[in-house]
Structure formats: C-alpha cells, structure tokens
Amino acid sequence: MTPLLSVKDLTKSYGAHVGCRDVALDLFPGEVLGIVGESGSGKTTVLNCMAGQLVPDQGRVVFDTRTDGRGDVLRMSEPERRMLGRTDWAFVHQNARDGLRMGVSAGGNVGERLMAVGARNYGRIRDTAEDWLTRVEINAARIDDRPTTFSGGMQQRLQIARNLVTGPRLVFMDEPTGGLDVSVQARLLDLLRGLVRDMGLSAIIVTHDLAVVRLLADRLLVMKSGEVVEHGLTDQVLDDPQHGYTQLLVSSVLQV
C-alpha cells in the first residue's frame, strides 16, 4: 500500500531557534495520525509545513493527489497548492474564527469551497450546505445565521462542515477541541470519529490533549524540542511509553 502522505527530513528553523528537525512520517489512506507534545515542541510547525502554509528549510512532503498521482507539495506551484487546499485537503484551525468567515452566513461558509471549485447552482449549493449542517448536528434552520451568533462548539462544528463539504481525503487538524468545555469536546470528538470513519478520511491531528488522540488516532507521534522522540500505535505508546518524555507526558494526565 502506498502512503497518502509521506514526509521526509522535514526541518524548519526560525533563525537560531529550531522549529522542527528531521521529522519523517507516513500516513496511509484511512488512517488517523496524532501528533502530541508540549507547547513549543514543534507540532504546529510540522503541521503548517505539511499543509503548505509554511515553507520548511528542507525536506519532502509527497502527497498522492487524486488527479496527478504522487507529487512533492513543496515543489508545486501556488495555484496547484491552493487547488489541493480546496479539494483534497482540509484544515481545521484551533480557533474557529480563523477558519470561518464571520461576516458570512453559515450556508455561505459551507458553500464557499463548492463555489471555489466551480459550483454555480444556488439551489444545489444550498441543499448541500443544509445536508452538511445536519451532519454536524447544527439545526438546518440556522443556515442563514452568521457564525457570530453560534456558540464555540457550534462554530467549531461549522468549521468542520465547511472543510469536509468538498469530500477531502486528508484533514489537518490543529487542536480541534482546544478552548471548548469538556462536554462539548466529547460531542465534537464523537462527531469527528463518526465522520472520519464514514468518509474514510485520513487525518493528522495535532493536540496536547492525550484523551483526544486516544479516541481518534490510530498511530501516535510524540514530539519534544522539535524532534520526534517516540512513535507507534496509540495504545502502545500511551500504555507502555518508552521515552522519558512520553512517560512524563502520560503520567501528567490527571486521573479523575
């Protein structure tokens, strides 16, 4: 089986400070990969480099595109990368406000990607938007409301709907549950798990919350100071941590 996304030697430094160093990973179709680590460990740097939002100093990010087969994302032209960003890829921001257009109605937010790839039939765009709002458990009657009138959890679900509407194959998530209270987190995780399984999505989830990866991720990467210190199956890494830092991380979680 060929990996959907294959990253090699990914290195990015901010001046003298190392963002990430020699990160390598493979993501297979239908797989969910978690990246955990403390703040400043380089998780988000790795994610942004893979998603083409940051230019790494060196490395290769090979993605298996729907149309042209495998290609190095970093060597693609900007239009090609943007096209990927609208079709095969999705990016869920930690803060829903970064990923949504707050001045545009929920329906417009969901429809934007469709219109960006050429949908020109209002009725069909609206039907699709309604369908997606229902799938992320937002009342379809709120289709014309702006996200500013939504709660934090609803905004995050709207952001997910907006990203998944074009049927992407790879979803990047940066702390998707950050800033939400625990009961809302639980519902969101449940929803995400369902969507990922139903649509056969591959996803890379960056988080510092071990519960999130325990629920969602098949495999886990542990990062510290810009380097991957441990990787393996999620349950294996969390139940039998080998590296000192991972042991610290696992033991830091409060048991209720």
């Binding site: 900007e78 239009p79 329906g107 990607r113 960006a116 790839v117 209002y122």
Partner: peptide
Amino acid sequence: LEDYGLMHVKLYEDIAR
C-alpha cells in the same frame, strides 16, 4: 490565482437574505 470563490459567496449571501 483566479481564486474567485469568494465573489460568488457574496452573491449567495444576497440570495439567501
């Protein structure tokens, strides 16, 4: 980049409202 999806979002909003 001919990234004009947003222009139709404006027209969509018009019709929705």
